[in-house]
Design a binder for these strands. Structure first.
Lengths: 215, 215
DNA sequence: TTGCGAACCGGAGTGCGTTCCGGTTAGTGT
DNA sequence: ACACTAACCGGAACGCACTCCGGTTCGCAA
């Protein structure tokens, strides 16, 4: 089937983008045709998102453009939300390395409270920069945001910081959820629509929220 | 159809009726057949939700049970989310009268900070009591929660209280959104699923959040 | 090289929310 | 009583996410 066989040496891209999160017992390696199709699908999806806008990114369209059946997309990405999250994956990875190993106050070295603030601000900026994709990822399937790898990572990161910043016995898991909740793309979409809220406003509001606790 | 015809003479006065110009804010009066169908639809929807569960509440099924076309449902309720919200309307109304005119600390008379706390707690209880319906209402359509009447009312209520409790210049609109955000049904569904969180935990967590500010 | 099973492939099929539109009816003015 | 029209009605049709399954391919081991 694949007539255009590359004469180049096997491309040196990332060895298997496998999950951002908890790898429990190695998910099994990916067959070469599967990997090739994943690449095609992502390329097609990115192309279509750029052309037709995110809301024009239908699964059938992507499948057609990638020369693949829709079943293949669902096996790889689970659902439409998974596909959109995959589109965000590259940015997400660099974001993760910034707050886990970058320079303070986002990275290690600063006070936990300052890191929490920097983290939320960075998230607000990221939301603004990739608003359409993030909104689509979040609304493509019910609960998609919370089930996603990135959410789990962000949550775990916040919990670690809050455990240092809050007295023992505090439910830092809930607190982390509560701090992430205002950064829901749907909520911010609503705030934009009704009150013209900007990323600057969001950050200021989050500071209000934090000043109480972390001042 | 409607056999009970009124024997009363045509009302003597009050020419009243429809304004010649569309009055923004005043919903046009509803025709009697429309009202009858609304009642039928809601009754059928409640019946089906009780029988098949909320996830079995499909629009086609409701239309069939109500003896009505699906178009009629959409004209009345806008979308599936609107229908589910309508199912919650009765409870919502009594809840609203409680926090607007009931006894303290939920109703007027208590300190604003205490009222905020009582309000959020009441919301958490309500969420627990009608979890399935609320989750369905929120996830039936993207952004349904924020576009809904109840959200606007809750938000306005919180803003009014926060305006009294926070120093001038605070963005109480954002703060209100931020306090309501953790009470998203989707988020709580996730917390239940992954950590077995209960309404008690939610309230304790919200108290943590508020203690900082409203000490 | 050959055999074999697990993993993968594609696309027809399904279910459901939503829209569209030709026909019908309630309510008003004459 | 009659005419007129805006609002309403039903349900066929549509778009799209997602599933299912018979056929194919990869990768390993003999």
């Amino acid at each position: 089937m694949d007539s255009r066989r590359s004469a180049l040496p096997p491309e040196s891209d990332t060895p298997v983008p496998r999950p951002l999160l908890p790898v429990v017992g190695q998910p099994a390696p990916e067959r070469v045709d599967a990997a090739r199709n994943r690449r095609r699908i992502l390329a097609a999806a990115a192309r279509i998102a750029a052309t037709h806008g995110v809301q024009g990114l239908t699964v059938d369209l992507v499948a057609g453009a990638a020369g693949v059946g829709v079943g293949t997309i669902y096996r790889r990405f689970g659902d439409r939300a998974g596909l959109v999250f995959a589109l965000l994956d590259e940015h997400e990875r660099s974001f993760q390395s910034e707050f886990m190993a970058g320079t303070p106050p986002l990275g290690p070295g600063a006070e936990p409270t300052a890191r929490v603030r920097a983290f939320l601000h960075a998230l607000a900026d990221r939301l603004e920069a990739q608003f359409e994709l993030m909104l689509a990822a979040e609304t493509s399937a019910p609960g998609a945001r919370y089930r996603s790898g990135p959410y789990a990572v962000h949550h775990a990161h916040l919990v670690a910081l809050l455990d240092q910043a809050r007295p023992p016995g505090t439910d830092t898991h809930f607190l982390a959820d509560a701090l992430l909740a205002p950064l829901s793309a749907s909520l911010i979409a609503h705030q934009r629509r009704t009150r013209g809220v900007t990323a600057r406003d969001v950050k200021a509001g989050l500071d209000d929220l934090l000043r109480w606790s972390l001042g």
